[in-house]
């Protein structure tokens, strides 16, 4: 049987999935990137090979997320796609008649509008990361609530407190002031969820026509408080898919499947035991002063990027660009 690997390297989490020919998820792994994308990918690959009950015969591999280039050279990917396309593909697989995808990840949030199965519009937060997973994480931490319980605590509230939503700094100081006045924690966090949803709809969702069915995915979709706040604000049901936190990876795997690759570039699960490292230098060839990154496997440079003039693109030995 043929299987396809999808990897999504995001700012906060690195996800790996294996799907079969029909697109069913066989394995899904969610780990924290912790600022070390190479290590995270290797760890994920190791976990997959440990769970290798069926001897995965990988026909093609795809990567996505902000670390997609890096992941692609490490595992040898056939398809490297941006996360907006990947998320849209995965949402359509889960809910074929989806018209709106809300996605909130660690550092970014996006909205994707689909009509008749084609992406017609999208937006992504540009300058502000308020309301994304990292901010929620940080606030849960500050209040001493495990992030997994954050949403359920919010649902217990009957009297949400109004929190300023447009900026993480304003939101945090508002939360602290209200907390010092003695408001209940659940009222504050429900208020926070509402504020973040308000901010999302006003900022990322500005001017977009949100039609059902609405799919909510990304790490933050696990937060039932956020889901409830979206349903309340939109006045329509919001569907959270089962694999909501690895949808990007599912999309990458589906795209790899669609690419119909003859000979995959996939290097095998052995890459988890190889030594990968990265270093960088500032090129003084011209006034651009590009910061060029070397990606090394077993001490040998296998890829380089960061230069604007392609001077460093060619890597010795491989001749590959």
């Amino acid at each position: 049987m043929a299987y396809y690997l999808g990897i999504d390297v995001g700012s906060v989490s690195t996800n790996l999935v294996i799907i079969d020919e029909e697109g069913n998820v066989e394995e899904a792994i969610y780990i924290r990137t912790q600022g070390q994308p190479i290590k995270a990918v290797q760890e994920g690959m190791k976990m997959l090979s440990f769970r290798n009950r069926k001897k995965w015969d990988i026909k093609a591999a795809g990567t996505t997320g902000s670390g997609r280039q890096l992941a692609a050279v490490i595992v040898g990917a056939d398809v490297v796609k941006n996360e907006i396309t990947a998320h849209a593909v995965a949402a359509q697989k889960e809910v074929p008649d989806v018209q709106t995808v809300l996605e909130i990840g660690g550092q970014d949030s996006k909205i994707i509008i689909l009509r008749d199965g084609v992406v017609t519009d999208f937006a992504m937060n540009t300058v502000c990361a308020a309301g994304t997973g990292s901010f929620l994480d940080q606030q849960a931490n500050r209040l001493g609530i495990p992030i997994e319980e954050f949403g359920d605590r919010a649902l217990k509230s009957r009297n949400p407190v109004r929190i300023a939503g447009r900026c993480a700094v304003f939101a945090e100081s508002d939360m602290i002031h209200k907390q010092q006045l003695g408001y209940k924690t659940e009222d504050i966090i429900r208020g926070l969820c509402q504020a973040l949803v308000r901010n999302y709809l006003n900022n990322v969702g500005k001017g977009k026509e949100i039609r059902p069915k609405v799919v909510f995915q990304g790490g933050v979709a696990a937060n039932s408080g956020m889901k409830a706040a979206f349903e309340e604000a939109l006045g329509m049901p919001v569907y959270v898919p089962r694999y909501h936190n690895v949808m990007g990876a599912i999309g990458a795997a589906l795209l790899a499947r669609e690419a119909q690759v003859e000979n995959t570039a996939f290097k095998g699960f052995g890459v988890s035991d190889m030594d990968f490292s990265a270093d960088s230098f500032e090129c003084h060839g011209c006034p651009n002063r590009c910061e060029v990154v070397n990606i090394k496997m077993e001490g040998k440079v296998i890829a380089r990027w960061g230069d604007r003039c392609n001077r460093w693109k060619t890597v010795e030995g491989t001749g590959a660009a």
């Binding site: 902000s66 796609k81 941006n82 996360e83 907006i84 396309t85 992406v119 999208f122 992504m124």
Partner: peptide
């Protein structure tokens, strides 16, 4: 990422 998605 945004440009790629836009072009797609």
């Amino acid at each position: 990422t945004r440009l790629e998605a836009f072009v797609d």
